[in-house]
């Protein structure tokens, strides 16, 4: 049975000690100055993510979920509030918080293996160990045969798997995934959902997964954070207690997803009014 919670603006009811939480987001706000005056991408957003959790964030365009990811990754700093990772404030990018983007962001002049090795090299891993690790991770995403392929020789789904291998290979504390499967076809997405769940179970990495696809969020997440737009705030947080491994056809999944989707539908008139 899924448990629905009204979370309001202060985050979930369960309070985790900030020092222990993989991520502790404390009332962050971030504004953008636009031609029509500044908009609040995020307004007083708070969230705690526990070690090993897989938290999904869903919301309509403009709800600030990509901004949230930038703040978690340290690519941007909040205008107000703080972001902590294991008690330390996030002030910049770090390989402890690896990002996987919607567009693969692989280096096109390198091979698949080269891309995975690069991060390891930056982390100070020696040449032989790098190669071994890279090959291991490519094997885990079922791409060991394509280790020497150049990026343009791989399909979109394969490139994302290389990006995932690159992310996991660094054994980050947190993996931040920004709509990584949105640009892929349904079959590839299904495949990658399975692969991601396997890797997550095997490594216990904390994952924050941003998506606009509600069913995907319920499929993957321990919890789903539903956001509203203009300004970006938490609408509610839903615990997903369904057993794993999960599949899209699971009946419980559809029920939870339906509740969340009605949230998104409510968003539409508000967005139109805001001139989105």
């Amino acid at each position: 049975m899924a448990v629905l919670q009204r979370a309001g603006r202060r985050g979930p009811v369960v309070h985790l000690h900030p020092a222990g939480a993989a991520l502790h987001v404390d009332g962050v706000s971030r504004a953008y100055g636009g031609k029509r005056g500044s908009t609040l991408a995020l307004d007083g957003f708070s969230l705690d993510v526990a070690d090993g959790e897989l938290v999904c964030v869903v919301g309509p365009s403009g709800c600030g979920k990509s901004t949230l990811l930038d703040l978690l990754a340290g690519h941007q700093l909040p205008d107000a509030g703080h972001v902590y990772a294991h008690g330390e404030e996030v002030t910049g990018p770090s390989r402890r918080r690896m990002v996987i983007f919607q567009e693969h962001a692989l280096f096109p002049w390198m091979t698949a293996r080269g891309n995975v090795e690069f991060g390891l090299e930056m982390a100070g891993v020696g040449k032989a160990a790098r190669r071994e690790q890279a090959d291991l991770w490519l094997h885990r995403v079922h791409l060991e045969q394509f280790a020497d392929s150049l990026v343009h020789e791989l399909s979109g789904g394969m490139r994302q798997r290389v990006a995932i291998a690159r992310g996991f290979a660094l054994e980050p504390e947190v993996l931040l995934m920004d709509e990584p499967f949105s640009a892929l076809d349904a079959q590839t997405r299904d495949l990658l959902h399975g692969e991601l769940q396997d890797l997550w179970t095997a490594t216990g990495t904390t994952i924050v997964f941003i998506t606009h696809n509600v069913r995907e969020a319920v499929l993957l997440g321990d919890r789903v954070v539903s956001m509203s737009a203009h300004p970006g705030r938490i609408r509610r947080i839903v615990d997903v207690d369904l057993p794993r491994p999960r599949h899209m056809e699971d009946p419980g999944l559809i029920d939870i997803a339906r509740e969340l989707m009605s949230d998104l539908r409510d968003e539409v008139p508000t967005r139109r009014a805001a001139g989105a």
Binding site: S149, H152, S155, G156, A183
Partner: peptide, 23 residues
Amino acid sequence: MVAPSRPAPGAVLTHDDDALDPA
């Protein structure tokens, strides 16, 4: 060695997919 796998029909194309399916 080369791995061209075509995007499925109706796949959403990003600019990666626009750039060259070798097949």
